[in-house]
Design a protein around this nucleic acid. Sequence first.
DNA 1: TATGATTAGTCATATTCTTGAGTATGGGAA
DNA 2: TTCCCATACTCAAGAATATGACTAATCATA
Lengths: 187, 187
Amino acid sequence: MALKHAVLAALLDGEYSGYQLAKAFDVGVANFWHALPQQLYTELAKLETEGLISGRQVIQETRPNKRLFQVTDEGLAELERFAAAASKPSFIRDDLLVKVQAVDRIDAAPVIEQLEERARVAAAKAEVFTQLLARLRGGLDEAEFLARGARLGPYLTCLRGLGFERETRDWCERIAGVLRERSRVHP
Amino acid sequence: MALKHAVLAALLDGEYSGYQLAKAFDVGVANFWHALPQQLYTELAKLETEGLISGRQVIQETRPNKRLFQVTDEGLAELERFAAAASKPSFIRDDLLVKVQAVDRIDAAPVIEQLEERARVAAAKAEVFTQLLARLRGGLDEAEFLARGARLGPYLTCLRGLGFERETRDWCERIAGVLRERSRVHP
DNA sequence: TATGATTAGTCATATTCTTGAGTATGGGAA
DNA sequence: TTCCCATACTCAAGAATATGACTAATCATA
């Protein structure tokens, strides 16, 4: 019951096709959730039969036709209900953490490499989020935007994404350093 | 193929029963993964038939009997393989973020409440992690422990957990403040 | 002396997420 | 002009995860 509301929330920004949504959810630019195209198409079909979104066909000359979706009043009401209900806390669930947990019983070298790679990826995502935030702010500075800006939601989730990626980057760099140092001393 | 390695990594700390593991994974004290008891019992049975862990019955007088598990050499080799293979980046996937994404189209009040509640939960978890870290360090200070301590893995994943919970707490508090202020101005 | 919590598990079902393979067209680079 | 990439979407099957309902004993609390 979760992807459902993520899709509804994503469609609040305007009309999107399944393909467009899929790209956003795949990269995680819709940085509050992640899903694959197949899931999204299925979910969109379900939401439409439930009347929570409505789609309209757009005939294109040069490209395959597409369907654009928007949230209906019923969809908005469903989001409203969802937001008012409690939700359980989220957990980190990350292969890399499992590897680090085991690191003093196995070969550290590949783990160090993966930490460094992950730090690079996180830094790149942080950069993307920083630029996206600047774009969402328009001309205003942050305090101004938070006080009076329109479409606050995406900005706030993007802030979370930025914080998360920075934390990830810092932790990965630090831990890689610690492990590198230890494997230098105890080869 | 993920819980499997999380269980193997958790069992590196010593012998545990399914029940003990379940509690750790449920609270997320094994803060690098989360799973429900049913999943763990199933996984332990599978791991045992695969020869990656071995269990021994412990007869108890006052309590139901239990089985304690430990990682076999084969299990360690499997972890080794797992750690050397690449793994894809992790994504945040959080109901609360979906609600925040939608917050300027729906009633903000329940979302603010949930942000404040989540901030409290995150602060409490951060506190638990801080104490756990102190216990793991023993007498040493952090730099000393990271350079020369034993059983580094759990310490490092706990550091990640601490960073994550602090980030969560700060973001929730900040966003709750922003939304409270806005709903005060635009009631 | 009931009541509920804790220990220690099991079984079945349902939902969600991932993997892999396709269809079809147009545009740009080699 | 061939080949790959982007757009736009579909179908099927499998693995992982979550939900709900059970058994059965002991221990603490009200």
